[in-house]
Nucleic acid binder design. Sequence first.
DNA 1: CTGAGTGCAAACGATTTGCATCCGG
DNA 2: CCGGATGCAAATCGTTTGCACTCAG
Lengths: 139, 139
Amino acid sequence: MKAQALIDALRKDGERITVLRRAIVQCLVNASEPMTAVALIAVLKKMNLQPSPPSVYRELKFLTEKKMTRTLQFEERNRRYELVPADHRHHLICTECKGIEDVVVHHDLDVVEKNLEQQKKFKVKRHALEFYGVCNKCQ
Amino acid sequence: MKAQALIDALRKDGERITVLRRAIVQCLVNASEPMTAVALIAVLKKMNLQPSPPSVYRELKFLTEKKMTRTLQFEERNRRYELVPADHRHHLICTECKGIEDVVVHHDLDVVEKNLEQQKKFKVKRHALEFYGVCNKCQ
DNA sequence: CTGAGTGCAAACGATTTGCATCCGG
DNA sequence: CCGGATGCAAATCGTTTGCACTCAG
């Protein structure tokens, strides 16, 4: 199981494995879309954990520093968190149901970035690309 | 002057032209990058206006409903606002100085969107594309 | 004159911080 | 045992709301 592998990796790094840490990793592995901290807290409550918000935020920060998760900011108030995906992902965001779908799209942005570096002298480190629209179900 | 044209358009729509409204439009016209409400309030203060934050937020909401401005959300806490640009813009965001530069890039995302609509049955309305990196000055 | 626009105070909601306590290794 | 992890309360901070007052047309 993926969650166990992540936990093992943390343990190997000498990090403590607490109940909350294990549960949060498990939630993120199960999540079908990048989660907000608020949603994560709700799920954890259903698992009979009563985590305080600060603990959850600190844990997410910890995992992000460990480069195990990353943060995303869409056009909404809350920050979202997801496990760092192996491949280069972008997102489809439904403006109706607010659902988020991951996609791997084939694009020419590498070329675009090279041009930007030459023409604008801007050193591109990464890019964010989101598509907003209406998902299959909501049409 | 661009600001005057926008004000005239509003007046033509039967909207009231207040001191604050005119000043905010002027600020956005002058702005070299999408502004946060907080930054906008600071600039307005320098113009000897003492707008209350709620008034500024309401005004920005009004202008956005009028489709004269639009909101942007980068990977930072605050929302940003900019006049709706005539052409299709994206942004270069410097992670050092936090500066934002507009760019018009030539890309193949139209094709990507068509593929998404066919393969994922996701009706794309728009996309957001930002490049994060280090600007010329900060390198 | 009349309703849109405004200021002020307070509410809101996500996130952070300080601090005392707890527990994994 | 010991330092990292946690809970709780409170602070932060951008943004929103309620309400009474003001001013543009």
